[in-house]
């Protein structure tokens, strides 16, 4: 009974993906007849060839990768440095900084003021608009701070004895000791940027800068063709369209699906560190 309920949960989670993969790999005839449910019929990779050859999608893919790589590095560096400083209770104005940071979880400037301010900084239609406005996540900062305050004092003190400053201690001693939590936060930031649709919608007008999520939305939700000819194959436009859309969804989700199981053992641990002290 218990096992079958949980098996149902697993099925409900995975079936949509299985179905999309099966349809996107099947030949038009079978998709048209609607007899694809679990595995592909008339296996072929044509949809994936079309998706990967499409100039808009490959452009967006490269953009997304750029945003993720630059943004994650930037965010991880800033937040871990900030969190390390916050974990030092003796730091000047520590409480004030903490209060200022936590307050933003409960009150915010809202969509329009944020948009106008970002615009006034000149970030509209630049790569930075995908990186700076979401550079630090307060949750991630708290998780990191809690982790750093749990590190044994002796280790850091040995560094101090050797004449390291706080900055030296942070880079040479604390960061190498924190690989698990850094991997977790790295994953959170990377996924956040990979999935970020909101910033792109607000701050990007230039189609050459669009990340994958925007192109995917334009393709799927607005039914726009991505490239000439991309949707004009096969007999029934609509059905073929469907497998093309599924293929695009799979292509844009695959990196997350692939990396995620390997990092899982890190992130459950990492998240719990944060939830202990909140």
């Amino acid at each position: 009974m218990l096992i079958s309920i949980l098996f149902g949960v697993v099925l409900a989670t995975l079936y949509p993906f299985i179905y999309m993969i099966a349809v996107s790999l099947s030949s038009d005839v079978h998709v048209l007849k609607g007899d694809v449910f679990l595995w592909p019929k008339g296996l072929n990779f044509r949809m994936y060839e079309i998706v990967l050859r499409d100039p808009h999608i490959s452009r967006a893919y490269l953009n997304t990768i750029l945003y993720v790589v630059v943004g994650t590095t930037f965010s991880l560096l800033i937040s871990s440095a900030g969190a390390f400083a916050l974990s030092k209770k003796e730091m000047f104005l520590n409480r004030t900084f903490t209060l200022l940071i936590v307050f933003t979880m409960f009150f915010s400037g809202g969509m329009i003021p944020t948009f106008l301010i970002v615009k006034s900084y000149g970030l509209i239609d630049t790569v930075w608009s995908m990186i700076l406005p979401t550079a630090v996540s307060t949750w991630n900062l708290i998780i990191l701070r809690t982790f750093f305050s749990g590190l044994p004092k002796e280790v850091e003190e040995s560094g101090k004895m050797d004449g390291l400053t706080d900055i030296g201690t942070f880079f040479r001693i604390v960061l190498p000791l924190s690989k698990a939590v850094l991997a977790t936060i790295c994953l959170f930031y990377a996924v956040g940027i990979w999935n970020n649709f909101f910033s792109a919608m607000l701050y990007l007008r230039d189609a050459d800068l669009f990340p994958l999520q925007v192109v995917l939305r334009n393709l799927v939700l607005e039914g726009q063709a991505t490239a000439n000819g991309a949707t004009s194959i096969g007999g029934d436009q609509l059905i073929v369209d469907e497998s093309l859309k599924f293929a695009t969804i799979i292509v844009s989700t695959v990196p997350i699906l692939l990396i995620y199981p390997f990092l899982q053992k890190y992130f459950t641990k990492g998240t719990l560190i944060g939830s202990v002290k909140g």
Binding site: I78, S79, A81, G82, A83, F84, A85, L86, K88, M91, F92, F97, L100, I101, T104, L132, A135, V136, L141, D166, I167, F170
Partner: peptide, 12 residues
Amino acid sequence: LLLLILPTMLYY
């Protein structure tokens, strides 16, 4: 430490 927290506070 203040130097380390500077970018974070600047962000906020």
